[in-house]
């Protein structure tokens, strides 16, 4: 079981609806809370993370700030049409502290993970870290 959503592990950001050069979405998957990805306004925002290979994931952890409602979808292939909803969660507001969102999934095969931020407590939202626990599927 390891974090499959790490850039060093080969995960990539396939799509991101907000891109600030100083805070790109790659900061989510760099494994540290210091760097972060910020949205540039409007909702919903989404990020699609593509794992190196087809994985079996157990849980998703997010360190974020000012997120109110978040939804997760997974897809076993690269195509857009085949995303299936995984979970949806309301997050509490924490002032001046990172929110930690944990979603346990059971076993789920996924190649891509889609994170949709439906609403936030402020105009912008920051995601500091994304951690997906899973293991590689062989075969």
């Amino acid at each position: 079981m390891f974090d499959v959503a790490l850039a060093s592990g080969g995960a990539q950001i396939a799509l991101s609806t907000s891109s600030d050069d100083s805070h790109p979405p790659e900061h989510m998957i760099d494994g540290t809370d210091e760097t972060f990805w910020t949205t540039t306004g409007l909702y919903p925002q989404e990020v699609i993370v593509r794992f190196q290979a087809l994985m079996s994931i157990n849980s998703v952890e997010l360190s974020s700030y000012d997120v109110q409602n978040i939804a997760l979808e997974t897809s076993e292939s690269d195509s857009i049409d085949s995303f299936e909803p995984l979970a949806e969660k309301e997050v509490e507001r924490t002032d001046h502290q990172l929110q930690t969102v944990e979603v346990s999934v059971g076993e789920r095969r996924a190649q891509c993970l889609r994170i949709i931020i439906n609403s936030g407590y402020d105009h912008f939202v920051a995601v500091h870290r994304l951690k997906v626990n899973g293991k590689a599927l062989h075969g």
Partner: peptide, 8 residues
């Protein structure tokens, strides 16, 4: 990366 993202 950006190209790929563009594709997506």
């Amino acid at each position: 990366i950006l190209q790929r993202r563009r594709e997506v």
